[in-house]
Every structure is written in structure tokens, then in C-alpha cells.
Design a protein around this nucleic acid. Structure first.
Lengths: 187, 187
DNA sequence: ACTTATTTGTAGCGAACGCTACAGAAATCT
DNA sequence: AGATTTCTGTAGCGTTCGCTACAAATAAGT
């Protein structure tokens, strides 16, 4: 029982990085197995089936994403909505983070058809993200923490979509515009 | 030469509505043909290949989308960024328009892998959308029309993504929050 | 050492995929 | 009416897909 779980863990890592590089679209068992350096037969020995393999890999990717989030704000320090949006958008639009957002988009787009676990995974990532954002917002009297968190996540997602389908320059234009006014005090 | 183009046009409509209902994921030739009420053999008679059939159907869908846009604002009347965002988000988040946004998301997500024409199509839709938005914005002195348009599109996309992966209620929360402040005057 | 359980390779199944060859039916032209 | 082009059904090719049956190799337990 030792060998299998070890190699399974190692394969999970390899699958995660392969998916990050190549997306979710072309992920046949044989491709995934080659990327992990094993035979397809072995991949189905480590994992119950393809869905379980993908779920494990996507789980690892999600973990990396949430770990990256922690780096954008000082330990346990709460920020205003405007500051948090500025810092988070800088992260999510960075070249290093783009692959993660790309995969997220693929999962979200694929979550409509009920095959594959994409819907459940993207949903749990989104709600986790929302809670994390809400938990790092200062809660002024009269402020709507949940509304702010939802708005921030919408903006982050929107900027990523825009960068994909209209280019990075347009996305930066939108970000600059939104940083200015989107979360200013309600006066 | 008459029969073929007629049936091709009719098939295009059927394909478009089928894709709107079922998404881009499961669109095999045989499925598409069944949806259009013809044999797969005939579909490949009307269209050169699968890519051409999908391109035609997506083109029809894009045309319907841009037609729907014109209905949200009075004839040739220009609006402020805040007003336009409010009206457009009401449209894009409506139940009737959701399928169109879903397809757009699928195309955007699929535009990374170079197969299929999705990348080019989603790009042209996005830039067309941007120009349309910019063209319907009042241009105050000192205002950044392009920045406003990009910001509006980012918000619209973000709200759709949020509604998919976090639910309609969360998306509405974000919208209400953003309508309040996102495009208020800069001072 | 011998039994048992875990780990791997080979080979291939049945299904679906995009697409095509071929021939017959139907329309069109002269 | 005969010739020619346009249309459509049948059948299937070659490939890839997810997955499995089978058996040999390897390790582990007693």
C-alpha cells in the first residue's frame, strides 16, 4: 500500500503541472499518462478512473492557488476593499498566475455540462475565495462585507476574461479605471 | 445551387439554437446532425467540415447577441458609464441572455488551445462589444471613454462568471454593490 | 520457502469520433 | 428524351477514446 500512494501523489503533481501548461481541453488518459511519465495502465492503477485523476490534479492546483493568495497581504492584516482589490488584481493578472486563472475559466465554462466534476470544484473554489476575501476585509460600520467580497471577485474574474478575449492591454486599461473608483468610500 | 444553400441556412439556425441549449462541449457531428434533423452525411454536404458548421452557427449566435444589445438603449442615445453598466448588466444577467453568455464563456475558455476557431471568434465579439459600448458612452471632457468601456465589459463578464461559479444570488450581490459606486463621478 | 498480496506490461475491447467512397435518386439543362 | 449536374442514403474507414482481462513480475508476510 506504500508504493501506490507514493506514486499516486507524485503523479498528481505531474498531472497538475501538465494541466497548468496545456489546459483541460486535451487531457486524454494516454496524454496524461505520458505527461506523468507512466503508462496509461498505471494511471488507472493509481486512480480509480480519469475523473478521479483530474479531480486530484485540480485539487492540487486549487491548493497552490489559495497558497498564493496568502502572499499578497501581510500576516493577518485586514485591508479595505479598494486596497485588497488592487493587490489581488496585481496577483491574478500577473504572468505567473495567469495559468491558474485560465484553468479556472476552463472549469467554469465546462461546469454547465454535468459530466466531470468541474462544476463542483469551481464552485468550491469560488466560495472558498469569497470567504477568504471577506475574511481579509476590514468591516467598517455600515459596510457590506459580503457585497464587497462578491464585487471584488467579480472584478477579478472579469479582468481575466477581458485579458483572454481582448488582450492584456485592454484588461490593464479596465483595471486602472476600476482601481480609481470602484471601491472608493461611499462618502 | 438553391436547395443546398437554403438547407444550409436552415441548418445553421437549428445548430445555433442547439448549441445555445446544450453548449459547445458535446457537439459531435452526429449530435449536431440529429439536432438539425438531418443525417451527418448531409451536414457535411451543407458544410465543408465540422469547423465550418460550428463557425456558421456561432456567427448566427453572435449576430443575435449584438441585435439584443441594441434593445437596451433608446435609439442613438448616449448614456453615462454608470447608466450603461446598469442597463447592460440587467440584460446580460437576465435569464434569456444567460445562454449567450455561457457560450461566450465556453469560447473564451477554449480559445487557448489553437484548434477550432473559437479564439478568433471570441476576440472579434469582444472587440465589437467594446466598440459598441464606447460608441454609446457620452464623452465628458476629461473622461476616458475607452477605459470606461473596458471597465464595463470587465464588470459584465465578471458578473457572469460569478453567477456561474458562485450562484445568481452572489452575482446579484456584487452587481448591487458595483452599481452603487463603480462609475460614480470621479470626485 | 511458500503463500499471498501488490505492482506492472501487453493486448485489445466496444464505442464514438470526423470524415469519405460509392452508388442510386432527383432535379436541371439542351 | 437524353445527358449532366445536384442531392442523399448506406456503409464503413481509420483513429482515438476510456477502460479492462490476463498474466507475469515483484514485494511482503509467516
Amino acid at each position: 500500500m506504500s508504493r501506490k500512494s507514493d506514486q499516486r501523489a507524485q503523479a498528481t503533481k505531474a498531472l497538475a503541472s501538465h494541466i497548468l501548461e496545456n489546459g483541460l481541453a486535451q487531457t486524454s488518459l494516454r496524454q496524461l499518462a505520458a505527461a506523468a511519465g507512466v503508462s496509461d495502465r498505471m494511471l488507472l492503477y493509481y486512480f480509480e478512473d480519469k475523473t478521479e485523476a483530474l479531480t486530484a490534479a485540480l485539487g492540487a492546483i486549487a491548493a497552490e492557488m489559495t497558497a498564493a493568495l496568502a502572499t499578497v497581504i501581510p500576516e493577518g492584516e485586514k485591508l479595505s476593499a479598494g486596497e485588497l482589490f488592487e493587490k489581488l488584481s496585481a496577483l491574478t493578472m500577473s504572468a505567473k498566475f495567469k495559468p491558474y486563472m485560465r484553468i479556472s475559466m476552463e472549469m467554469i465554462a465546462a461546469s454547465n455540462d454535468e459530466s466531470a466534476p468541474y462544476g463542483a470544484i469551481s464552485n468550491s473554489i469560488a466560495t472558498g475565495f469569497l470567504h477568504w476575501i471577506a475574511g481579509n476585509l476590514v468591516s467598517d460600520a455600515g459596510s457590506d462585507t459580503n457585497g464587497d467580497a462578491a464585487a471584488i471577485l467579480a472584478l477579478l474574474d472579469g479582468l481575466i476574461v477581458l485579458s483572454i478575449c481582448a488582450g492584456d492591454d485592454t484588461a490593464l486599461l479596465a483595471r486602472n479605471r476600476l482601481v480609481e473608483t470602484a471601491f472608493r468610500a461611499k462618502n
